[in-house]
Write a protein that binds this DNA or RNA. Structure first.
Lengths: 212, 212
DNA sequence: ACGGTAGGAGACGCGGGCGTTTCTTAGTAA
DNA sequence: TTACTAAGAAACGCCCGCGTCTCCTACCGT
């Protein structure tokens, strides 16, 4: 015994402007954008699948078809946005770029990435990952590793150029720059200016690197 | 027209063990403990007023009577736990304590504080505070300021003892130690060993402080 | 030109936490 | 001792988001 059929004829499916119907990657991109905007505006806790669907002008079904849970959706959006951020570090250095300038560049890139909705995602997903080892591993592979390698790469290049003492090309030292920026942005919630990045590099990181 | 009165006579209000009925501070302390345990086990998102009440063996009304929202409850619990943490820094140093040992001590204290449920609280409340300036200010006054002052105090004391170069008694330098520890614990969700604290102090912070 | 597939939109039933209220009773102050 | 306040416990109605399902239709391959 099913319920009486509902009359759908009254619905207006096309608004006055003829709506372009997106598919595949174009749709996924729009959903990722909606996720990040939603994170920035209302935060992870208040974010719902329904709110994302509404903002992306799509149906809930199109989202559920791709990601089973809110968490997986946010992780996917986050990885998408964070993915290329560190790949570009290597390619943007020329032979004349000093280690110091490379570090400033990486610092700015971290800030740009983490500003807005993506920072929210880090907090929220990081919170989950402290209780979910699988998620923690996935995040580390996608974001942690690239970041570590990018920074270690800069330091090792510096050693080769004679700008960095060899013992300073170390995982712990490489963590200093991201740690200083991320605590500000994510834990304290303060904005970080370009000027601040420069100060961290010049007053904290570079003194640790310089050969005696 | 009200609903028909409900018969409450069937309720068993006293379990077999005679339950001690707490009041005032004793009750509040039990609720704070329940909040922190709940944060550590299921996280901020999954925490509900009902789950806290159940764990603390109290009624929801007793909680709503004190805190209007989940957020305020968690903030209160967090401040309670974090409150004294930094006050003790000054008193635990003797005349013979070196700057290096004082820093290790502060580092361990930060780790101990942030481990478990309190770390969860920082993440969650920090997330809110990026959208709520008033909350951000309250948190900074309760936790951020004491932390900064404690660390700057250690550095200034080091200057007086000749262990620290004067220009290093700086806000930015003082941030290095907490930044290195907090990113590990809160953002990456990794445990931090005593050994790691020592390495951060000896390999990162101390080299920044030493007089030429 | 023409199915088939997937997208936009939203109804639907369900579950769970919210905030309130009700009731009994333990502890406290007068 | 007695009156009063607040604690422990749970029922209640409400709202809201979940996950599914249905409907219409734009787009794509052939």
């Amino acid at each position: 015994m099913t319920a009486a059929p509902v009359d759908f004829a009254h619905r207006v499916t096309t608004s006055d402007a003829v709506r372009h119907r997106r598919r595949g990657e174009a749709l996924e991109g729009a959903i990722y954008d909606a996720v990040v905007d939603e994170l920035a505006e209302i935060g992870y806790a208040a974010l719902t699948i329904e709110s994302v669907a509404a903002r992306a002008h799509t149906g809930k079904a199109s989202i559920y078809r791709r990601w089973p849970t809110k968490q997986e959706l946010v992780v996917a959006a986050f990885c998408e946005k964070a993915g290329e951020a560190f790949d570009l570090v290597g390619t943007s250095m020329t032979a004349t770029t000093t280690t110091r300038d490379a570090l400033v560049h990486v610092g700015r890139r971290i800030c740009a990435l983490v500003r807005g909705g993506v920072g929210e995602a880090i907090r929220a997903v990081g919170a989950e990952s402290s209780r979910d080892a699988e998620l923690a591993a996935a995040l580390d592979a996608r974001v942690g590793c690239p970041k570590r390698e990018a920074l270690l790469g800069v330091l090792q290049r510096g050693v080769a150029r004679g700008e960095v003492r060899p013992e300073a090309a170390d995982e712990l030292i490489a963590e200093v720059l991201p740690a200083m920026l991320l605590t500000r942005i994510i834990i304290q919630g303060l904005p970080v200016s370009d000027d601040h990045v420069v100060r961290v590099v010049d007053d904290v990181v570079m003194p640790l690197l310089r050969p005696v």
